[in-house]
Design a protein around this nucleic acid. Structure first.
Lengths: 198, 198
DNA sequence: TGAAAACGTTGACATAAGTCAACACTTACG
DNA sequence: CGTAAGTGTTGACTTATGTCAACGTTTTCA
């Protein structure tokens, strides 16, 4: 499937995502696209603030989004990075419609497709494909979170670095040391030292 | 709703769970019950071994189940404890039907209701209530995992203990120090010392 | 019921990781 | 294009937590 004009081109990555997973006809596809708005965001732009209620789901055409929080002591913890071809949002807030306890941020200049919560949930309830996508997103999110919990606990800094290289080979190439360290739960100095010991 | 004989009584907690969440008629309820087999298990019994493929979901009438793994160095990590009125399984393996990288264990003498994966997925696909339950389970599991990731990172032992007391008040009363420590990612000695400093 | 195993607590010691600061290097952008 | 801010690395020092062992208490189950 290919598109002629640039507006349609913005939906190319989402189209690939969908047809790669489901048998889905052109008309249904257009119906889905009509719910998604193209959005361009700049590097370091905050898409959702702490304490804000999350009402949008994003699909990433290009770039990278990060979910992170800052504790009382000012320490940043990153819990998730999403790249091209992935969905991302502050899911706990999106689900409950309670204030987010985290930030959603673009860490690179990014091109996104945004869908409102209302439209998203409507798609989930009216199209079997989207109901399956949401289930897949949740299952994958859950499985990843478990892997992370097991992958981190009882591991020293060097083992964590090996673990992330093995499970997400591009991660350290794409993300700054500082952010990677805040994901791994170690200080930037320790990450730096661990990498030199590989 | 109340049951006369003991077999039906085994479904009482599941009935409470369901009617507390949905308007659901007696006939549908019986259809759901017919997929669940009562099972009694003893303290410390392993319900699923490492490398075994998980084909069963459990609902807990009484008792407590634990999900944990053991790394190469012999260190135990517990990732989840489920109590009365909750569902539990080794979800990553249950989803993918790949060998589990964890154990599922009863840590108390427990009364469970077991449903096969086949029946579970069929219920999810054929009854809107169960489809919603599965979504809820996944959403809750995901949200809990996120809370745990944020709740642990950058926290010292004392803060972790305070966090678990606040977010799961009964946890430390119900679970041994050793298991609680393996959940919090600290040694039993450190947990003991942290508690004395509360 | 009673012996044996498991558990929780505490002390002394070892160590991995954090903190802080200095430095060179890269990136951002007015 | 050039300055200023940000980043990664490394060394010296500090500290929280793990390890190991000893002890008394509780639990288990034959």
């Amino acid at each position: 499937m290919q598109f002629i004009n640039t507006l349609q081109a913005a939906y190319q990555p989402l189209a690939s995502y969908l047809v790669g997973r489901f048998k889905i006809d052109e008309q249904k596809l257009q119906g889905i696209f009509s719910c998604f708005q193209p959005v361009k965001v700049s590097r370091n732009q905050i898409l959702l603030n702490y304490n804000e209620v999350c009402r949008t789901y994003y699909f990433i055409n290009t770039g990278c989004l990060r979910l992170f929080t800052v504790n009382k002591a000012g320490i940043e913890t990153s819990r998730y990075f999403a790249f091209e071809g992935m969905f991302a949002t502050a899911l706990p807030s999106f689900i409950d419609q309670k204030p987010a306890l985290e930030y959603l941020q673009a860490i690179e200049k990014s091109e996104l497709l945004a869908i409102s919560r209302k439209d998203f949930l409507q798609l989930v309830d009216t199209t079997t494909e989207f109901s399956h996508i949401y289930r897949e997103i949740l299952e994958l999110g859950f499985v990843n979170a478990q892997k992370r919990i097991y992958g981190f606990q009882g591991f020293d800094a060097l083992e964590k670095v090996k673990w992330v290289i093995e499970s997400q080979p591009n991660f350290l190439l794409r993300v700054s040391n500082k952010m990677a360290a805040s994901y791994l739960g170690i200080s930037p100095s320790t990450l730096s030292r661990a990498k030199s010991r590989l």
